[in-house]
């Protein structure tokens, strides 16, 4: 599904060069649930951003669905992101000015989907995460757990092949975190590939593969 070959990433700040990742070889198969773990600052989120094409590697190559990502030109990469990935962020990143239903519709706006169909798909996604009754609410009227469910609904509404979650339970208490984890496992069982960055060992024990990162490198 996703193949990273000898991928590296360097950040340049003023005159300081920081090597965030080096020599990353990683293959994520279809239907896998992969947890990326490691200490803070080791490069987990950078790796997730590279997988999701939110950032450009400094070296190496990335293949998505068997095809090499050769161009990071705006239009090309935007289309690829929209069709392939759904993102879940630790701090939810919902748009507070929009209602829950409008937030969930967001990925469909950038496809040629008719308004009526868009609304129906968003409603179905919200019902799937158990928030069918909160469609007209605004994000700040919901609890943290509910907001993360909205974020998950937004991530799955376009039926992406891969869900990328960056510490999705990091801002939630253990009960709500557990519920979110259940939801991600259910989505994985239904055929969605999930890649998740987490610090939570308990959550990681529930998935079928753990990838550990240390000092910008994968460790066994």
């Amino acid at each position: 599904m996703i193949q990273l070959n000898n991928v590296s990433k360097t950040y340049q700040t003023d005159k300081v060069e920081t090597l965030a990742l080096r020599g990353i070889d990683l293959h994520i198969r279809e239907d896998e649930f992969v947890c990326i773990m490691g200490p803070s600052g080791c490069g987990k989120s950078t790796l997730l951003n590279l997988i999701g094409l939110l950032d450009q590697p400094g070296g190496g190559s990335i293949h998505v669905g068997g095809a090499a990502v050769t161009s990071y030109r705006d239009k090309h990469v935007a289309r690829l992101r929209n069709a392939t990935f759904g993102f879940i962020f630790q701090s939810f990143h919902l748009i507070n000015d929009l209602r829950v239903i409008d937030n969930v519709e967001l990925p469909l706006l950038y496809r040629s989907v008719a308004a009526g169909e868009r609304r129906a798909m968003a409603r179905a996604a919200l019902e799937k995460v158990g928030l069918g009754a909160r469609m007209e609410h605004y994000p700040n009227q919901l609890s943290g757990g509910q907001q993360q469910r909205v974020a998950i609904a937004r991530a799955i509404v376009g039926r992406p092949r891969v869900l990328l979650a960056d510490e999705p339970t990091g801002n939630l208490d253990s009960k709500m975190g557990g519920e979110i984890m259940d939801l991600l496992l259910q989505l994985n069982r239904e055929g969605t590939t999930v890649v998740m960055v987490t610090h939570d060992e308990r959550a990681a024990q529930r998935v079928n593969r753990i990838v550990r990162v240390f000092d910008g490198q994968l460790v066994a």
């Binding site: 992101r81 993102f87 962020f89 950038y110």
Partner: peptide, 16 residues
Amino acid sequence: SAEIGVRKAFGATSLQ
């Protein structure tokens, strides 16, 4: 900027 980031992550082009 966070909203812009989210829109880009979900497929918005610069032109959009």
